[in-house]
Design a protein around this nucleic acid. Structure first.
Length: 455
RNA sequence: GAGGUUGUAGCUCAGCUGGUUAGAGCGUCGGAUUGUGGUUCCGAAGGCCGCGGGUUCGAACCCCGUCUUCCUCCCCA
């Protein structure tokens, strides 16, 4: 008796049609990175647990898939820790490896490990799956692909500008009707926290602020109070609730708002620099906004923070990124600045599917399908098929000499453009019959005339 | 991790206050049509009613547990 097959929650199978579309997205992204001189790399799907743990904050650690020790290694289980209810230590003693949670931390490890083999600034892109033990939801999976591009070893803001242009090129080429690239700067957030006199609670302050567009001003105020911020702080930041996202206006507001904060002004300068470059080289389709409430990846971002949202669809961010000054420091290599972005291919896919943006050509079938009448004619067809493949055509020969109705149905469902018939009748006359599946018309050709018409 | 929700044929779903043999559409397969796809007609196969336990004379239906689905929160792509 067979049980119903299934796959773990938050994972997906990809049918041929869907896979074609996914590969199309990946290739557009990879091509764009390559045009800018980024080089592809790959890293293992699992890393040492110690490489990953502690890099994503407490929440992140909980979402890392761990790989259970096997064989003799199960003896390493720390039963003492279990008795003392030290679950974290117990868990660590059971697992030495874990599935990668993102591509950035493994990349930092990669850069430190191979620093002598790399030329800096090093520009790499990486398209691989990552795993998170998250609760699946709309547009959220436990296994999904990230498409990351990073530049390490250069603190020039031109890298930020370049990444913004790559995002713009990719999303424009994929045909998204509109998208907003939101940009902020960790230094601006630090300046705000400094002004409020709560520099050490910057994460509490800014992650509450980050929810402004979702829960509104009242919600943010309520949440800030719950987190213990008093009226002085609330009064200080209240002007931030109404900042125009228009870049020049937001900049001039921040210039006066943060004038007494040295670090804040540094952030404003950086944003201003990026904005000026955008005037020199404008975006194709993307709209750029300065959003001071944007506060993502604060565990490691130190400068620019980027997030991209598609317009006209209900969907979380489709790209995210930023600058991290000391990520490789965690692995012992100090003073190497990096900046990167990550495309959320799965979400981009969902949006393109919803808006029907995929090119029709992606799921077209073979150019020619030879029907199979008998072993003898099939041998002849196989030779013609091979010749056609050598000239770049996609060609199939139906494997069995079953009734034509079945073969025609196969051709139809496979999306074959042409069906070639060569049976006993054709063989005795020295002809082939070629049917155009779209129009339904079919023509009889002298074999030699047909072959030369294909050249 | 917290709260809610869902599960019946390959897919989408009916199934009454618990009552005999659980239905439909689509799809699949066969035939009408032994050399021609999409349409049409006829026929057939396909179900431990998510899984485990409980209540009951009797459970797809009620209760508990578990897994799964989707949603909100947390967090994130």
């Amino acid at each position: 008796m067979s049980q119903k097959p299934s796959i773990p929650k938050g994972t997906r199978d990809f049918l041929p049609g869907a896979l074609n579309k996914r590969k199309y997205i990946f290739s557009v992204i990879a091509d764009a990175f390559q045009r800018y001189g980024f080089q592809g790399i790959e890293t293992p799907s699992f890393e040492l647990t110690s490489t990953l743990m502690g890099k994503y904050g407490e929440e992140g650690d909980r979402l890392i898939f761990r790989i259970l020790n096997s064989g003799e290694k199960v003896k390493k289980a720390d039963m003492e820790a279990l008795k003392q209810e030290n679950l974290a230590a117990f868990a660590n003693s059971l697992s030495e490896k874990a599935l990668r949670y993102d591509l950035t931390v493994p990349f930092a490890r990669f850069v430190v490990q191979h620093q002598n083999d790399l030329t800096f600034p090093f520009k790499r892109f990486q398209i691989q799956p990552v795993w998170r033990a998250d609760r699946p939801q709309h547009g959220r999976y436990q296994e999904f692909y990230q498409c990351d591009g990073d530049v390490v070893g250069s603190d020039s803001l031109r890298n930020e500008v370049e990444l913004i242009h790559i995002v713009d090129e990719v999303l424009s080429e994929l045909g998204l009707p509109g998208f907003t690239i939101k940009i902020n700067n960790r230094k601006v957030l630090s300046g705000i926290a400094e002004l409020c006199g709560v520099g050490d609670q910057i994460i509490d302050l800014t992650t509450a602020l980050d929810k402004l567009d979702k829960i509104g001003e009242e919600g943010v105020v309520r949440e800030l109070r719950e987190r213990g911020f008093d009226d002085t702080v609330l009064n200080k930041i209240s002007p931030l609730f109404h900042i125009d996202t228009n870049f020049p206006e937001a900049l001039s507001f921040l210039t006066s708002f943060l004038s007494t904060s040295e670090i804040g002004m540094k952030g404003v300068e950086e944003l201003s620099y990026i904005h000026d470059r955008m005037l020199v080289l404008p975006l194709t389709k993307g709209k750029i906004e300065l959003d001071v409430t944007l506060a993502r990846g604060l565990n490691y971002y130190t400068g620019a923070i980027l997030e991209v949202k598609a317009q006209g669809v209900q969907m979380g961010s489709i790209c995210g990124g930023g600058r991290y000054d000391d990520l490789t420091g965690l692995f012992g290599l100090k003073g190497l600045s990096g900046v990167g972005i990550s495309f959320g291919a799965d979400r981009i896919y969902d949006i393109m599917e919803t808006l029907e943006l995929f090119p029709n050509a992606l799921d077209s079938g073979p150019d020619y399908l030879f029907l199979n009448f008998s072993e003898e004619e099939a041998d002849q067809c196989a030779q013609w098929a091979q010749a056609l493949r050598r000239s770049g055509k996609v060609v199939e020969l139906y494997p069995n000499a079953v009734k034509l109705q079945k073969q025609m149905k196969y051709a139809h469902e496979k999306g074959a453009k042409n069906v070639v018939m060569y049976g006993a009748n054709e063989r005795t006359q020295g002809v082939v019959v070629v049917k155009d599946m779209r129009s339904g018309e079919q023509h009889q050709w002298e074999v030699s005339a047909w072959l030369s018409s294909l050249e």
